[in-house]
Design a protein around this nucleic acid. Structure first.
Lengths: 195, 195
DNA sequence: TCACTATACGGACCTGCGGTCCGTTTTTCA
DNA sequence: TGAAAAACGGACCGCAGGTCCGTATAGTGA
């Protein structure tokens, strides 16, 4: 019944691939595509190994993304206030949004890749597991608030204003600093949760 | 000096290509890619003609998009109230947003293609000419409002909540009707422009 | 320690697509 | 009507995602 312990080389390779992919996505100059071959080569692994381990390109990207955001997800799911579940609703929504903005800005190339990789085929970003998860957390928290808006819709609105491409546009094309963006986002959150 | 009148066949072909592309993008089943070859064949034209006339794939998509939204842009730029420039600011923002939502919902496949085609390479949706144009109109109109929020940022927020993929998600996965979405959008607009 | 088997490996290979190129055809204009 | 300018179209190219299968190797039982 026990399906034999996972092979050591497979585990090693998976880690190597994730590390290489993370590095390439992050370092590759703005708007440069990163091919699967490049990732395989950088990881010192055959292409077959990539596809066996992650299914397809978007699977790999998702895996990298999940590795990068594991800590944040944990902090939100089980951490202390203001991110964790114990916090007062409004504070929590604001804290979560601020954290999301910071993570997206700090990993902007990866986030761009993620968001455009998922929007290509049938599965939109919005149908993605991580999106659904944050959306659910936000919606539940918003529901505990006194706002008269629909919680689910409001959560979508909040998340849509922190899409990676928009954030990127604000930091590059304009003079907006990270703090400024966080503060602008916060303004909108307060508006929407007021009343 | 006068650079010879445009050739009749070129004009005919351009129209045929636009029509074929529009039809294919609109009719192709959810999540099915439409290749340039397919468009060329459907238009009864060689592939070279496509690329000569529109530069590249995203150029073609943009052209189709612009043809489809010409009327709306005109109504906003020079039309009567509530869309046109004469209207009271808050009314105008609300009207523009409602019109945008309706157009996006009615042309959802095309809008999806447009938004993902532009987000692929360096140019994000946000750097696109049509986006910049609506954004400018909204920002200017918002500036005439009594809101304390930053007009440009607010305009970005408004536009981000009507991205095609989100709208699609709301209509398909949930039970949200077109009217419901328009009304939800309107709620947010009012919140943001209040005070 | 030594088979033996399940599992993973890796890179040659396939396919489809965006984009280019250039010999041929059509249109325009004098 | 003839010649030049402009457009045509489809063969062709390179690249990237994804598959396949013969080979290598980690685990397992004796």
């Amino acid at each position: 019944m026990s399906p034999r312990k996972a092979r050591a080389d497979a585990v090693r390779n998976r880690a190597a691939v994730l590390a290489a992919a993370d590095r390439l996505f992050t370092e590759s100059p703005e708007g440069t595509a990163v091919s699967m071959d490049a990732i395989a080569t950088a990881a010192g692994v055959g292409k077959g190994t990539l596809f066996r381990g992650f299914g397809d390109r978007s699977g790999l990207i998702r895996a990298v993304y999940e590795a990068r955001t594991e800590r944040l997800r944990e902090a939100i799911a089980t951490g202390p206030a203001p991110l964790g579940p114990g916090s007062p609703p409004r504070q929590r929504v604001r804290a979560v949004m601020a954290a999301v903005v910071r993570v997206k800005l700090e990993n902007s190339p990866l986030m761009r890749v993620l968001e455009s990789a998922t929007s290509g085929d049938s599965g939109a970003l919005v149908d993605t597991e991580p999106y659904r998860w944050v959306h659910a957390v936000l919606a539940e928290t918003i529901a505990e608030t006194s706002t008269s808006l629909d919680p689910s819709w409001t959560a979508h609105v909040l998340l849509s204003m922190v899409r990676a491409d928009l954030l990127d546009h604000l930091t590059s094309d304009r003079r907006a600093s990270e703090d400024r963006i966080v503060s602008d986002v916060d303004d909108v959150v307060e508006r929407l949760l007021d009343r």
